[in-house]
């Protein structure tokens, strides 16, 4: 019988783990969210701006996560766990290139490499780099501070509130799924997870329970004056060294993009 905290349950419990990392106290955690958000956006735009055949030029950008992971003390295992679900989308998207673009580009040791194969690798690398950057942003900033920053950057409050509430609903869903799964496996000897035949009622019950729970959370929020607009705490002013840091990192990214 699987342990209640392993497998599926452990996986869904891991959803909160990244945000718990945001409670750390490293240099990166203390950095103003504006610096982190702007740098991440800049990095992602630079990475995505390369052409489908420019794999060699993408490789140096692995330095960004390689430096930030130890600096932020984000456990690599947690980061990889959150990265993996994003890969199948690129995998299937990139595979179509392999089939449709068969034009040979180069040969290595007599083996012909097609344009489709190179662009497939390029898509995978871009996904890994950009999703890692976003995960690192969440693991060092947290959803509250991100929403705060988005608000102060002029993003409409209704969109920011939607983001926060959706994120919160995810936690509610995870909690309910965890307790249901524990209860399920304890009464299902020999089951490795939720059996296919039980999946319908499991998901249905999960939906009803989480709606009920979300309703209670919402009631508690209304009792504390929530009227549909999330009002995050204002952050301290950005300092000159932080602005300088932003300038240096973005400048370096721009320079690396322009170099041939």
């Amino acid at each position: 019988m699987p342990k209640p905290d392993s497998g599926f349950s452990g996986h869904i419990a891991g959803l909160n783990a990244l945000e718990l990392c945001a409670c750390g106290n490293t240099f990166l955690h203390r950095l103003h969210p504006f610096v982190k958000l702007t740098t991440t956006i800049f990095y992602v735009v630079v990475v995505l701006s390369f052409g489908p055949l420019e794999i060699g030029r993408l490789l140096p950008y692995f330095f960004y996560p390689a430096i930030l992971i130890p600096l932020s003390e984000t456990p690599l295992k947690i980061l990889l766990k959150r990265l993996l679900p994003a890969l199948p989308f690129s995998l299937f998207g990139g595979l179509s290139n392999v089939f449709f673009n068969r034009a040979p580009i180069m040969s290595i040791g007599g083996m012909m490499i097609t344009g489709g194969e190179i662009s497939f690798v390029s898509i995978m690398i871009k996904t890994i780099l950009s999703v890692s950057a976003i995960l690192l942003l969440v693991s060092t900033t947290g959803i509250d501070e991100l929403s705060r920053q988005l608000s102060s950057m002029g993003i409409p409050n209704i969109l920011v509130t939607q983001l926060v509430i959706t994120y919160r609903y995810l936690s509610v869903l995870v909690d309910e799924a965890r307790s249901m799964f524990t209860s399920y496996v304890l009464r299902s000897p020999g089951a490795r997870g939720v059996r296919a035949g039980h999946m319908g009622f499991f998901v249905g019950s999960l939906l009803l329970r989480s709606i009920d729970r979300a309703e209670r959370v919402y009631s508690a929020m209304r009792c504390r004056g929530f009227t549909g607009y999330y009002r995050p705490r204002a952050w301290r002013r950005i300092t000159f060294p932080e602005l300088a840091c932003l300038g240096v990192v973005c400048g370096a990214l721009l320079l690396s993009r322009c170099l041939r």
Partner: peptide
Amino acid sequence: FTMKVRDDIAFGPRNF
């Protein structure tokens, strides 16, 4: 529901 106790306690006063 927030990530820090201080933010949770401040949620009501800020809303008011």
